[in-house]
Design a protein around this nucleic acid. Structure first.
Lengths: 191, 191
DNA sequence: GTTGCATATAAAACTCTTTGCATATAGAGT
DNA sequence: ACTCTATATGCAAAGAGTTTTATATGCAAC
């Protein structure tokens, strides 16, 4: 009930093939909703069956035919209806923090290494978001409504990455020099 | 392959019943890994079958028997092994941002209302995290390793909520006074 | 009386990930 | 030359994970 909607949103811009959607997802809506190609193909079939999109095959000789999907009126209505339904805050799944939670009982060095990897990841993301911002939103005043929404998405991305980065540094600082092997209270593990 | 590990982590502290795990999840590990009671019961069965936990039934007359789960050596090993495996960054699912992405084609008022609701939610979360912080971590220096991990989790929670809150304000400010009905370029919807 | 808490189970429905299959071209590496 | 890899394009099915919904019992509180 949600990947479908992300696809609808992407199709607002223009008709696209599953492949294009997949590519484009990685750079636009996909900032906020990850999906693999397979997932998208699957979902498109369902959406076609539901009448939300209409497909048109474009023959190609050199490679598999393209199947271009277009938003239908029904799809458009489904999108509007979805926008009206309340959005739940995303449910959290932060594996790294679960590991951190086990600190004291598990090896700290590993976790520190993870934190470093994670930090690097966020540095990348941040750089990526900032380059998009510089390229596409150099003057964030007077944006059209359409561009306003996307700008705000990017803003959250940038703000979030900066925060997470700051947190990584704090965490690494706090864990530096800490005893690396778990010590103290042992677990009572039964055989 | 991950809720199970969150449960293992919780069981490190002490043996617990499914019910207790569910309650406790909401306040501890559950900050970073949401799970319902049903999910936990289910998972406990699997974990018992895999030998990661051992169950012991405590008879009760007034209400259903309690089934207390204890971490086994095998479970402990599984936990250690999991800590060693690299953690992927969480995959993003931010429905609200997908909606924002559609701004310009869909009704803006609805989205503004959502943003306000979301803002209130984050105010709550922040207050909750800060009260836990004040109560349990008034002096964040010289924490034991165990408490260090949990402190850091809380820190991220607080920092994240503050950031999101700031973003909500920014977004609301930007969208205030904007035209509320979609206008401009219409979608080419086919019948 | 109804609601809430304590405690557990089960099945359906849905979503997501993984794996594997197909096919053709272009480019890089050895 | 030969092989490997990447890109472009799609399909299908199995498994893993999650959410939703329903069922069951007894007490306490409102």
């Amino acid at each position: 009930m949600a990947l479908a909607h992300a696809i609808l949103v992407s199709l607002l811009d223009r008709p696209q093939t599953g492949y294009e959607l997949g590519k484009r997802f990685d750079q636009t809506v996909g900032f906020f909703w990850k999906a693999s190609h397979q997932q998208i193909y699957q979902e498109l079939h369902k959406m076609a069956k539901a009448g939300w999109v209409q497909s048109e095959t474009v023959a190609q000789s050199d490679r598999p035919n393209r199947i271009v999907y277009t938003l239908t009126r029904r799809g458009r209505e489904a999108l509007d209806a979805w926008v009206e339904t309340p959005t739940e805050p995303p449910s959290v799944k932060e594996e790294l923090l679960v590991k951190l939670f086990a600190l004291g009982d598990v090896d700290a060095d590993t976790i520190v290494a993870e934190l470093q990897r994670r930090r690097a990841y966020h540095v990348d993301r941040l750089a990526w978001y900032e380059s998009v911002m510089a390229e596409h939103y150099p003057e964030p005043d007077q944006l059209s409504p359409r561009r306003r929404g996307r700008y705000l998405g990017l803003r959250l991305g940038i703000m979030g990455e900066k925060t997470t980065l700051a947190w990584c540094d704090e965490a690494l600082a706090l864990l530096a020099g800490a005893p690396s092997k778990p010590r103290g209270r042992r677990v009572q593990a039964r055989s």
